[in-house]
C-alpha cells in the first residue's frame, strides 16, 4: 500500500516574525524552520499504518522553496521511505500549493491514503487538504483525531463543535487531515537520521505538472503584525468597586456588554 503525506515547512513557534520590506510577506532571514506540528501527526499516522501493513511505503511531499528539503529529511528520518520536493515560490497561496501537490501526486505517487495536517501553523488557512481532495476527486475528512484502517475503507473520528466527535467512513483512496490527539509523533532514531541524509529527494517542477503563477489566487498587498499586547490591568478596591469598574470596562472599553 502506498501512503502519502503532504507536509509544510513553517517558522518555529518561538520565532519573532518580522515583515519583509514591502509588507507582502514575512522576512525569512534568521528564521528556524520546522515541520508544521499537525503534519507530524500525519507523518506518524502513516508510519504506524505502514508498520502494521507489511510491504507498505510512505512517501512524503512538500511544496515550497529549496529550504523545504530539510523538512522532507526530517520526515525521512522519522521513517518515511521516499521524498518528493515540489518547487513552489515563497509567495504561493493555498490554491496554488494544493494544485501543485495534486499535480505531483497524480504524476509521481498514486496512493491509497493521503495525509495532511489539519492546518499549517504559519498562515493557519486550513485549505490545502480539502482543495487537494477536490483536485483529485477523492473523499476527504478533516480534523481527524482517530483512525481505523479497514479493508477498502477507513473510519475517521473527527472533532466537531461542542467538544463532540463524529465518525466518518471513507472509501479508499481518501484524504485525511490530522489533528492533535491522533497519535504521539516519534523522535527519529539515529540510524534513521543517518539513512535520511543519504536518501534521494525527487524534485518536481511546476511546469511539469501544469501549474503556473496564474494559479496564485491571493496576493498579499499589505501584511501587518498584530498590535503589541497591552499590559494587563489590575482592578483594585473592595468587591463592589471592583465589580463596578469591571462592568464599566467591559461596557465602555472592551465594548462586549
Amino acid at each position: 500500500m502506498n501512503l502519502l503525506v503532504c507536509i509544510k515547512q513553517v517558522p518555529d513557534t518561538e520565532t519573532k516574525i518580522k515583515l519583509n520590506g514591502d509588507s507582502t510577506g514575512i522576512d525569512p532571514a534568521g528564521i528556524k524552520w520546522i515541520v508544521s506540528p499537525y503534519d507530524e501527526f500525519a507523518i506518524e499516522e502513516a508510519l504506524r499504518i505502514k508498520e502494521k501493513n507489511a510491504g507498505s511505503t510512505v512517501t512524503v511531499l512538500s511544496a515550497g522553496p529549496d529550504r523545504v528539503v530539510d523538512a522532507l529529511r526530517t520526515a525521512l528520518a522519522m521513517g518515511a521511505d521516499n521524498a518528493v520536493h515540489v518547487e513552489l515560490p515563497e509567495s504561493a497561496d493555498s490554491f496554488m500549493a494544493a494544485k501543485a501537490l495534486a499535480g505531483a501526486i497524480k504524476k509521481e505517487a498514486p496512493a491509497e491514503l493521503i495525509f495532511f495536517g489539519k492546518e499549517a501553523i504559519d498562515d493557519g488557512a486550513a485549505q490545502v487538504p480539502q482543495l487537494v481532495a477536490g483536485f483529485l476527486g477523492l473523499p476527504g475528512c478533516t480534523v481527524v483525531c482517530g483512525l481505523e484502517y479497514g479493508s477498502g475503507t477507513v473510519t475517521a473520528k473527527r472533532e466537531i463543535e461542542g467538544g463532540s466527535f463524529e465518525k466518518v467512513e471513507l472509501p479508499l483512496p481518501a484524504v485525511i487531515a490530522a489533528h492533535k490527539g491522533l497519535n504521539e509523533p516519534r523522535y527519529a532514531t539515529l540510524p534513521n537520521i543517518m539513512k535520511a541524509k543519504k536518501k534521494e529527494v525527487k524534485a518536481v517542477k511546476l511546469a511539469d505538472i501544469g501549474v503556473s503563477q496564474a494559479d496564485q489566487k491571493i496576493k498579499l498587498k499589505n501584511l501587518q503584525l498584530p498590535p503589541p499586547k497591552q499590559a494587563g490591568k489590575k482592578i483594585e478596591g473592595d468587591a463592589a468597586t471592583q465589580a463596578k469598574t469591571l462592568v464599566d470596562f467591559l461596557r465602555n472599553e472592551a465594548k462586549v456588554i
Binding site: D12, T13, E14, T15, G30, K32, Y187, A188, T189
Partner: peptide, 28 residues
Amino acid sequence: MESKFPAEVQPVFKNMETNGTPWAFSAS
C-alpha cells in the same frame, strides 16, 4: 537507537534543535 525516553523530554530536544535552548523561547 530505540527512541524510548520520557515523553516530556521530546519538546526539550526540539527546542534545543531549533532554538538552541531547552526552554521554549526564541533564540533571538
